[in-house]
Design a binder for these strands. Structure first.
Length: 299
DNA sequence: CGGATTTGACCCGCGC
DNA sequence: GCGCGGGTCAAATCCG
């Protein structure tokens, strides 16, 4: 809805972004892409708390972890500018509100961790429409996964507000942009369908929640056990600190596992590459304890 | 009426 | 330098 108009290749038949993903994986900046292969994903997912399966369907997903923006280059989600920790999106308008007042952080989270992860240390407010020029934006860590599902929306225990939708080049399906409704939370996610396989939903999370989940308003549940396990896993597997508990497919979903091979992901970098040894994020200190919902903590 | 969504405009980075 | 494409803003609109 924008510049795309007029030259919108929206319905072109060219390869999709995910085609790029398959073979175009390139981490120009030597950034490590973390991809859970079929070998490890199940265990990791399980321990990770990704109950990416509908209680009835047993749907699964294929997650990929991106520590930095650039890494998404491989996913076709290229050219994701770097967002400075202080400003997830330079323009930080009202909606961006997240940053509105990190220091305000209320109640349960006054600890520094929350500030650092939630607001990313972002400035309380950015003049709208004045993205700091010259300031390279540093993206927050991302975690993407593909889900075979009829529905786009995965219940993950958080509330999201849609703030944009764009036509994706070479794909008949638009990409939707959501951000966490929590004012202190800057987490965002993109949802799009694979142009190649319309049944595949690609969800990319960016940032880390600094608050608790709200549960599943639509009747879903959070797998506390799994999440707890995830905590334990995370505590010993820094790489997995990126934590999104309780992802759940909705009823209509007929999700099933998508194997890397099917997506040509075997061409991607192996899960554990270089920096995995130290996959820690700048803001991960004490993170785990903060992003785990209270109920799970008490466990 | 307030919150969520839609959607056109704008900004920015990157490739050519 | 320019055009393309992605990402975000924000006013308008929708909806409960």
């Amino acid at each position: 809805m924008d510049d795309n108009k007029g030259r919108d290749p929206e319905f072109s038949t060219e390869p999709s972004a995910w085609d790029t993903l398959r073979g175009g994986a390139e981490s120009d900046h030597g950034v490590a892409n973390y991809l859970f292969t079929s070998d490890t994903e199940s265990s990791i997912l399980g321990e990770f708390g990704w109950n990416l399966h509908h209680p009835d369907d047993g749907a699964t997903t294929e997650p990929q972890r991106f520590d930095r923006a650039d890494d998404l280059a491989g996913t076709g989600l290229r050219s994701l500018d770097q967002v400075a920790p202080e400003s997830t999106s330079g323009r930080g308008g009202p909606v961006q509100g997240s940053g509105s007042n990190p220091s305000l952080s209320s109640s349960s989270s006054e600890d520094p961790t929350e500030r650092s992860t939630c607001s990313g240390g972002k400035q309380p407010e950015m003049p709208s429409k004045s993205k700091k020029k010259g300031q390279k934006r540093i993206r927050q860590p991302r975690f993407a996964f593909m889900t075979k599902s009829e529905v786009d929306h995965l219940e993950d225990g958080y509330r999201w507000r849609k703030y944009g939708q764009k036509a994706v080049k070479n794909s008949p399906f638009p990409r939707s942009y959501y951000r966490c409704t929590n004012t202190k939370c800057t987490v965002k996610k993109r949802v799009e369908r694979s142009s190649e396989d319309p049944t595949v939903v690609i969800t990319t999370y960016e940032g880390q929640h600094c608050h608790h989940t709200i549960g599943f308003p639509r009747g879903g549940i959070i797998n506390h056990e799994a999440t707890f396990s995830a905590r334990q896993y995370l505590s010993t597997h820094p790489i997995s600190q990126f934590h999104y508990p309780g992802i759940q497919l909705s009823k209509e979903s007929t999700a099933s596992m998508i194997h890397p091979e099917q997506l040509g992901l075997e061409e991607r970098k192996p899960i554990a590459s270089s920096s995995e040894s130290t996959p820690r994020l700048p803001t991960d200190e004490g993170l785990l304890g903060d992003i785990v919902p209270p109920g799970m903590r008490s466990k």
